[in-house]
């Protein structure tokens, strides 16, 4: 057994799914056996700035940070926590990408944005605010990925390389066993009429699926439930902008009509609704554009 690691979990906000995903880990007991817990805070009120300040700098071996970061207060807390920890894990989609909360960054003219502004800022991924050593993707992180993190971080003798993402380097499609027909995208379909055929690739059927641009490792569970991948694990390695990447894939699936006006193609592309909610569901705050701006509206 390696030396006891000192670990901490912090979720300043968020839905509580991340802390549950860790609590439900079958390796939890082993992990806790081999570790000291510095703190386990599941909401911002659980731990004050003062209390964090009193901890030794770099006294925590691994800090798991869940939930989104937004205004000054949460940024200050994140920075303070960073000082106290040797390694920081961005735990779950909110810390990794801003998560669903990030969509508030893009809501047009919304009261919400005013509120956000008054609150001191827009949603940001943790890595925009502090250095992040590891990423555990997912909303909440799927069990297999949690297990991998626990094993590599807490049960192994050596630490994983900085930059490790506890997921597959391949896309979700690699774990999806639906049949491919390589159909062109001639019509965008939604769940209105009927759910899709559960055995055929969703894109082949005209349903938007983020599988090709999303990091795998989840076992493609959503596809098994006959729902498209909505991208919770963030972009595949090497891709910066997950939303841009899926839009690019969709555009390339639309067959060229030969008509140079592109009218027919545009009709297909125009039928994609709620572009931001579809392409950037979890990653709007981590996108290259980050938030809605006012370009002389």
């Amino acid at each position: 057994m390696p030396n006891k690691k000192r670990l901490a979990f912090y979720a300043g906000s968020g839905c509580g799914g991340c802390s549950q995903s860790l609590m439900l880990s079958p390796s939890l007991a082993t992990m806790l056996d081999g570790a000291d817990i510095a703190f386990w805070a599941t909401r911002s009120g659980d731990l004050t700035e003062d209390e964090i300040s009193q901890l030794d700098d770099k006294g925590i071996d691994v800090l798991m940070f869940a939930g989104p970061v937004d205004g000054e207060a949460s940024i200050a807390t994140a920075k303070l926590l960073r000082r106290k920890a040797k390694r920081v894990v961005a735990y779950g989609a909110c810390a990794h990408l801003g998560g669903l909360c990030g969509l508030t960054n893009v809501i047009p003219g919304a009261k919400l944005r005013e509120l956000a502004e008054r609150n001191g800022g827009f949603i940001k991924p943790l890595s925009a605010v502090i250095e992040v050593d590891y990423v555990l993707p997912g909303c909440p992180p799927p069990q297999g990925m949690v297990e991998r993190m626990v094993k590599e971080l807490f049960l192994a003798d050596d630490v994983p390389d900085v930059g490790t993402v506890f997921a597959s380097s391949k896309g979700v499609c690699a774990q999806c066993d639906r049949k491919h027909l390589n159909n062109p995208l001639e019509e965008i379909r939604r769940f209105h009429a009927a759910p899709p055929d559960p055995d055929i690739c969703l894109l082949d059927q005209g349903y938007i699926c983020l599988g090709p641009v999303t990091r795998g490792g989840c076992g493609a569970v959503c596809l098994e439930a006959n729902r498209p991948c909505t991208g919770c694990a963030g972009p595949t390695a090497g891709v910066l902008d997950q939303g841009g990447a899926i839009l690019q894939s969709l555009a390339s699936l639309v067959p060229l009509s030969g008509d140079i006006s592109g009218e027919k193609e545009h009709r297909v592309l125009d039928s994609i609704q709620d572009i931001v909610g579809t392409a950037y569901k979890y990653s709007a705050a981590a996108s290259l554009l980050k938030r809605r701006v006012n370009d002389g509206e």
């Binding site: 893009v106 047009p108 939303g243 841009g244 839009l247 690019q248 969709l250 555009a251 390339s252 639309v254 060229l256 140079i260 592109g262 193609e265 545009h266 592309l269 125009d270 994609i272 572009i275 931001v276 392409a279 996108s287 554009l289 938030r291 809605r292 701006v293 006012n294 370009d295 509206e297």
Partner: peptide
């Protein structure tokens, strides 16, 4: 032309981001 389709869709996204 594929590139043009891509730009067409990206422009829709830019619009959503206020650009």
């Amino acid at each position: 032309l594929k590139g043009a389709n891509r730009i067409y869709l990206l422009k829709r996204a830019l619009n959503e981001f206020g650009v």
